[in-house]
Design a protein around this nucleic acid. Sequence first.
DNA 1: AAGCGACTTCGCCAAAAGACGTACACAACT
DNA 2: AGTTGTGTACGTCTTTTGGCGAAGTCGCTT
Lengths: 227, 227
Amino acid sequence: MEKIRNEMAGEITLSATPGSTMKKWREIFAITQVELADLLKISPSTISDYEGNRRKSPGSGVIKRFVGAILEIDTQRGSPILSKFQQGEGKSEQYFELHEFATSISAIDFQKMLNASVVANEELMKSKKLYGYTLMESLKIILEMPYSQFPKLYGTMSERAFIFTQVSTGRSPMVVIRVTPMKPSLVVLHGLKEVDPLAIKIAEREKIPVISTNMDLAKIKEVLNKI
Amino acid sequence: MEKIRNEMAGEITLSATPGSTMKKWREIFAITQVELADLLKISPSTISDYEGNRRKSPGSGVIKRFVGAILEIDTQRGSPILSKFQQGEGKSEQYFELHEFATSISAIDFQKMLNASVVANEELMKSKKLYGYTLMESLKIILEMPYSQFPKLYGTMSERAFIFTQVSTGRSPMVVIRVTPMKPSLVVLHGLKEVDPLAIKIAEREKIPVISTNMDLAKIKEVLNKI
DNA sequence: AAGCGACTTCGCCAAAAGACGTACACAACT
DNA sequence: AGTTGTGTACGTCTTTTGGCGAAGTCGCTT
């Protein structure tokens, strides 16, 4: 859902005629101007003005509300169109969750938000900036995920935090990082009991700071989704 | 390149604080406000005003120019950051080209633009609308492309044209469509010599109109990229 | 402490955006 | 021929955007 939302918004924004592109999407979702206007609490003629490219550069707010309304209407209808778009998406999502932040955040602030303690490479913390995170169950990633999915762990940016859940010693997660071509900026271990010395060795060699938290998983997601 | 452009624009547009997200991207590309302002021929303070969220809903034009300038600067520098984003992208692109139109286009208009003749299901032409196309070499797709790539042929929308190049009888392309779960709205055969009867049979069963053109490939791309 | 580069804050102004309502075009259908 | 649903065109209004420049902050380097 968030993927198609972003794609719609991006395409409208980049179009030479944003209004025509808005129209295109409304038609794809088979929604009338009246329906859309009702939900947005504006008049249908306003919609038509946009679609006729009377406003050459509609504001991000308008585009955001427009895209949101289209997706909401489709959802209310039982997602007849949305379901078409989400066919190929399920595969990667069963292994991990990707999230990009709207603004950058420093590793230090990130650590504070998660109420985490530093396990390795504390001196590297202050120079790191984060632009998103990837949350995954360490065992599932190692045992079940096909190799072809690995590059997807990085989303758009490698300047991100890898959050591993259900960790016992932290060894396996660090090995995963060791054998992957790209490297995250920060590693978060969740549920850690005892730190494996090899995990720290790897962290030092790869120059990646590692922090540990035991905050409730739902709480973690809630906090991070605000960024 | 177009993918990351769209992603940036979409993210900025959807953000609750578009300015902060603009800032995030400028920082990711390690560009100063002054550089950006120079290229955009506006004053640096204007950039700062945006980034400080003084404009709550920047217009699509601003966002488009902003994203464009960032990508241009990075390109001029030899794409130090862009190259990071384009790592995993090459795989699918060697098999086919995807393109989404900014506005919808009718199958009839599409046919005229390509100077094409109808091979099958002429009566279905008038009801079809297209939102993009996928261009591929028929032999390469059949012989070399891994199965996992097939869903990607449809881009965001299945309401699109499949353009097969280097076609002799049109049989194999139609077989590909027969065995794929999703179906395109229109098939274009390029370089067709003699139509295989089975190809037409498949088209009729799948209710997909088929047209044929011999227009120069470069010309085709040029024409379609204007939509 | 002086200077420099990068960035922020703010008052101000012209030009658009954002919205409305009315009028109008054009297919369906009764 | 009349009505109903969908979409366009446009005059008009207020609020924002989009832009500038001057003044100021905040680290660095020298």
